[in-house]
């Protein structure tokens, strides 16, 4: 029983931060049809910037709880910078090229950003632990959980709800759905698709950075954290269906719970359980769990 509870909670915690990252990735893919490898760098930048800023915040003696607002501010700031830098500065020139070429453009950006991180922050690891213990902990049987982790689950739920409301209950959101569904048709109806592209990319990048920013107090922020996350986020997006918001939720839950279950029940398979799930999904539902089969054009 305790193990089942632990699997559930651990899986949800893991799913929540992965969802933040995957939501950004799937949003960008849905709207722009770009599989953004540089998303891993957004996560890393968010984590580094947040770790540095939190360190400074606490060293300067500002109110403790302000550090949570700080993380959001950093994510939004970085998201705008990356959006302008990558989308306006680079990707805009690439539209119309093959999808795979654009993946490589983002792969190249990823390689370059990895080095930029080293230039700015050097090779050492950073940690900013204060916010993690700020909220105290909670006990289930013999299990302790940090309330910060539970707050992460809340954040993920709030973001999922927010995204749903934005897309289905606002005029702009519905227009965005139209762009996701058929870019050419949307453009023909007079929607300024290019502006939607820029805005979407900024939102997506912000989510990626936010994932890193809220994880920074939990982890030791070290070179290479972006690589680890991007592969997991890919798996989630593929499992759920690329470009689908629901898919990102389900994909994150599947990955989070599969990992947690493997750790508790069968640690031997932890290394490849996610790829195995991804392969199964691809074999039986190649478009992912939440995508309709595309019509074949003659």
């Amino acid at each position: 029983m305790l193990t089942a509870t632990a699997i559930l909670i651990d899986g949800l915690i893991e799913a929540s931060y992965l969802f933040l990252v995957a939501l950004g990735l799937t949003l960008i893919f849905g709207v722009m049809k770009i599989l953004n490898v540089a998303h891993g760098s957004f996560y890393a930048f968010g984590a580094y910037a947040s770790a540095t800023a939190i360190g400074w915040w606490f060293a300067s003696g500002f109110p403790d709880y302000g550090s949570f607002a700080l993380m959001f501010a950093i994510a939004i700031g970085l998201g705008i910078i990356f959006g302008l830098l990558l989308e306006v500065g680079l990707l805009k020139r690439m539209y119309g090229k093959d999808e795979v070429i654009i993946v490589l453009v983002t792969f190249a950006s990823f390689l370059m950003l990895e080095d930029v991180i080293i230039w700015i922050w050097g090779g050492n690891a950073y940690f900013a632990f204060e916010p993690y213990s700020l909220l105290g902990d909670i006990q289930f049987g013999t299990l302790f959980y940090s309330n910060y982790d539970l707050a992460l689950i809340g954040l993920a739920v709030a973001l999922a709800a927010g995204t749903w409301l934005l897309l289905n209950r606002t005029a702009k959101g519905r227009l965005l759905l139209a762009v996701i569904h058929d870019t050419e048709m949307a453009a023909a109806f007079g929607i300024n698709v290019k502006r939607y592209f820029t805005v979407t990319f900024i939102i997506g990048a912000t989510l990626g950075c936010l994932g890193g920013a809220v994880m920074a107090p939990k982890i030791s922020v070290a070179p290479g954290i972006g690589v680890e996350v991007i592969v997991l986020a890919f798996a989630i997006v593929v499992i759920g269906g690329m470009g689908s918001i629901w898919g990102a939720i389900i994909g994150a839950l599947v990955v989070g719970l599969a990992r947690a279950a493997a750790v508790h029940l069968l640690p031997e398979v932890e290394l490849f359980v996610i790829y195995a799930v991804m392969t199964l999904v691809l074999i039986f539902r190649p478009e992912g769990l939440f995508m309709r089969q595309k019509a074949r054009k003659i």
């Binding site: 680079l90 690439m94 792969f107 950006s109 390689l111 370059m112």
Partner: peptide, 15 residues
């Protein structure tokens, strides 16, 4: 300290 940057930059330039 910048070899990934150079390699990535070359890829971008070629594309």
């Amino acid at each position: 300290q910048a070899w990934q940057f150079v390699v990535g930059g070359c890829l971008l330039a070629v594309i």
